[in-house]
Design a protein around this nucleic acid. Sequence first.
DNA 1: ATGTTACTTAGTCATATGGCTAAGCATGAC
DNA 2: GTCATGCTTAGCCATATGACTAAGTAACAT
Lengths: 111, 111
Amino acid sequence: MAKHDPDLSLIFQALSDPTRRTMLARIGLGAVPVSELARPTGLALPTVMRHLSVLEEAALIRTEKTGRTRLCHARPETLAATADWMAEQRLIWEARSDRLEAYVANLIKDA
Amino acid sequence: MAKHDPDLSLIFQALSDPTRRTMLARIGLGAVPVSELARPTGLALPTVMRHLSVLEEAALIRTEKTGRTRLCHARPETLAATADWMAEQRLIWEARSDRLEAYVANLIKDA
DNA sequence: ATGTTACTTAGTCATATGGCTAAGCATGAC
DNA sequence: GTCATGCTTAGCCATATGACTAAGTAACAT
């Protein structure tokens, strides 16, 4: 059991690098082999592998090796969980703004 | 002009630290002075200040000094912009899953 | 069997990050 | 004026990060 729930620290850390975001966007369009992910970046393969392992440890992707090529797949659940956290914070922050606006509006009305 | 748009690298980097997420959540509830943010963390003040400057450079918060105390305010626009990026990726990833599911369903139907 | 392809592993290096202490500098209280 | 308060600045330290090269290993292809 226990699909050990999303670790926001690992996820945000993974998302904080532009190279990784680019790779992730590409993977999001459909499964990709490592070498094809590496090509547009111009980075050395070991470097790309490290980026991938960061993404995999954050559970943003899953990889599977067939023969000598490794395919990278997106894991939408993780992205969804993260989006949920953001949405939650957003609600709180904006509720707060609403209260502030209401307060200001009230001040103006009474002036 | 140009409110120089949100830098996702800075934002995700800022969000990747649990201490900063905690501080951010607190600030999201309403403006807080630095010392009050520091207290529950048990961290030294300079450390807290550094966390705050990371959050401020990511435009997740704004701070304003009055007398000798500095107040920290949330900046919901930045969180909103980030949530938008996530929502966008999510759509793409899930659209992809849908297509895959449709494909599988089709295979099964024809079997 | 031999070579090529596609990763892997190991190890190095420069810079960034997150924490600290020790002083410093305004502001508000007495 | 003097002192406590609330940040600020400066500088140090350990570890993490992102990049590399060089050398390995496991599949295919011929």
